[in-house]
Design a protein around this nucleic acid. Structure first.
Length: 270
DNA sequence: AGCCAGGACAAGT
DNA sequence: ACTTGTCATGGC
């Protein structure tokens, strides 16, 4: 076990802010998160978070996964432009944007379209059970591209993907042939990276932005889902077509982080 | 029973 | 480029 001290690291807010789907609260102040083929146990304490793993594993995997090098005090200062974000930041205290595995994140957000968060979690769980490896008893890793290549439309439907089955098939197909290269995308400018992701059926602007933010950590993107559109319209009086221009002007390089706080906040007060 | 969810897409201006 | 209409599943 190692203790990581931080004044901006809240497990509940980080996980419940809707960026990640494979975590579970197991006790008061205790969570597990399943990713990178591992089950990590975490505990919230006063001055930080306890990681139940070796120091080496923390440095190899989790330090990057939680982006522990990011200075949120500095970022928050830069994006507090008004009373609404200020309240959102206070509500979202300790929320960190994760750096998720690319393939898992991409499939997860394909599933997210026209879907609800609890349902998204269930579908991802079903897919992992069916195609992933059993890491611990009853806990399965998210499948690799190769593993998910075995999936048929019928089986995916049984996992409750609904009409998104064909999108998952197309994603797996394009990624396994190399037509879409998730690693190369990392090196592209954000605009081009987005274009590449959108080659996959079922990935439009919103899903692409989520993947760019949560797996590629392009903090400047600003995913617009129904909730974000709502808060922009009702609290900022900014119309849909003006959102992208507005967010760039106001929040610039960290618009995605502002978006995450706002998303989490508006849902809580609605 | 009808509404809606971290939308995508085509078709129309 | 921007807007509107259509599609679509499952859960409550």
């Amino acid at each position: 076990m190692i203790l990581i001290k931080s004044n901006w690291f809240d497990l509940k807010n980080t996980f419940d802010s809707g960026q990640c789907f494979r975590y579970k609260k197991i006790n008061e102040n205790e969570y597990i998160v399943i990713t990178h083929g591992k089950v990590l146990k975490l505990e919230q304490v006063e001055d930080g978070v306890k990681f139940y793993c070796t120091k080496k594993e923390y440095e190899n995997i989790w330090e990057d996964y939680f982006n522990m090098n990011l200075d949120y005090e500095d970022i928050n200062k830069k994006i507090v432009t008004d009373k609404i974000v200020k309240e959102a930041i206070e509500f979202s205290k300790g929320t960190r944007i994760l750096k998720q595995e690319k393939f898992e994140c991409l499939i997860s957000f394909i599933i997210s379209q026209n879907n609800r968060i609890p349902q998204i979690k269930k579908v991802i769980e079903n897919i992992s059970k069916k195609y992933g490896n059993e890491i611990e008893e009853g806990i399965y890793s998210f499948p690799t591209v190769k593993q998910l290549k075995k999936a048929t439309k019928e089986d995916l439907r049984k996992c409750k993907t609904g009409f998104r089955d064909k999108y998952i098939i197309d994603a797996v197909e394009k990624i396994s042939t190399g037509e879409v290269d998730l690693e190369k995308i990392d090196k592209l400018p954000t605009k081009d990276a987005k274009k590449e992701l959108m080659k996959i059926k079922g990935i439009g602007t919103k899903v692409a932005d989520c993947v760019l933010l949560f797996a590629y950590n392009r903090y400047e993107v600003f995913p617009e889902d129904v909730w974000v559109k709502r808060i922009m319209k009702e609290y900022y009086n900014v119309k849909r077509k003006d959102i992208q221009r507005y967010k760039e002007k106001i929040w610039g390089a960290y618009a995605g982080i502002a978006q995450q706080y706002l998303f989490y906040y508006i849902r809580s007060i609605s």
